[in-house]
Design a binder for these strands. Structure first.
Lengths: 163, 163
DNA sequence: CTCCGATACTTGACATATCAACTATTGACC
DNA sequence: GGTCAATAGTTGATATGTCAAGTATCGGAG
């Protein structure tokens, strides 16, 4: 037989209303990745909106919850968020102003600023847990559990290839 | 046998220095997706920096190139970028100031603003084409061609599940 | 102890995104 | 023809990211 399906104009190509097919597998994967992440991020944004926090703020709070009593310093937070320090400083300013985070100079090394989740911050996170689970499930709604695992592994490979 | 590997603390879990495993496949996929997109975006940002344009600007220019002589109106651009109009207006302000884009009121419907790529804009894009291909390839460096296609399909499913 | 390079932020300036509110048109209904 | 809701954009305010430049502190060499 000549062909089973070849490149019968992909789903993404239609979404973008492109007349031409993608230049390469790499290009389509790249565009698809950014676009899918935008969709997932948007869903998370909606999920968190009722609580008055943004997605990056939520990530910071969750990381601090994971850090426990010892807290984390600003640059450690930046590193885990794959982000530059300036943005973190300003986000922490806002989170501290709303009493979800507490900061203080480290005694050991006075250059460091250690950050902790406050009790109020913990209460806020606790309230989000239920809807957060729902948003997670929504992200893989179209996938079987096996496909979900497959996706996770492919994403791992993409990141390690770019490292 | 008891188990082959179970959830032997995932790659992502280590990247994030998390002591606890992810709550669910959905959660890990969700986090992995956002994180991988950040990495890919960063690579694109570096690739485009020498040309003095950002990733969103590059996307707008490419969409306008694809639109050809008829151009596109602001909201059509917004729709293809999965983004709100306000951001587009301001980005177009900057692109027009740099002479890569031209805008004019539509004659048919004076509410619309039609946007076109200028000759200078085309020249700029032409110069980026080579490195753009390289960045695309880098994104799937860790993947075989078959895995690349697999990833594309899984991402399609995620988006259609969230639609 | 002092100087000096490295480290850990912080601040300023600009590009992106988002929401809400406002202006200009359009098109449909009466 | 006039009213009015819907459509297309723009503008203002806030949050996020990024780079470049500045401040405070640390740690080691002399």
């Amino acid at each position: 037989m000549l062909m089973a399906k070849s490149s019968a104009s992909s789903a993404l190509q239609k979404e973008l209303k492109q007349s031409k097919p993608f230049r390469s597998v790499g290009h389509e994967a790249s565009v698809g990745l950014l676009r899918t992440a935008d969709v997932v991020r948007r869903r998370w944004t909606e999920t968190l909106a009722p609580f008055g926090i943004t997605v990056p703020q939520y990530n910071v709070l969750r990381i601090l919850r994971g850090a426990g009593k010892e807290g984390l310093c600003t640059l450690e937070l930046a590193e885990r968020l794959i982000e530059r320090a300036p943005g973190i400083t300003r986000m922490l300013d806002r989170l501290e102003a709303r009493s979800w985070v507490r900061r203080e100079r480290s005694v050991d090394d006075r250059r460091e600023v250690r950050c902790y989740l406050t009790t109020q911050g913990m209460r806020l996170l606790a309230r989000t847990d239920e809807v957060a689970d729902q948003a997670d499930q929504a992200a893989v709604l179209g996938l079987s559990k096996a496909e979900g695992r497959e996706l996770i592994q492919l994403l791992d490979k993409v990141r390690s290839g770019l490292a």
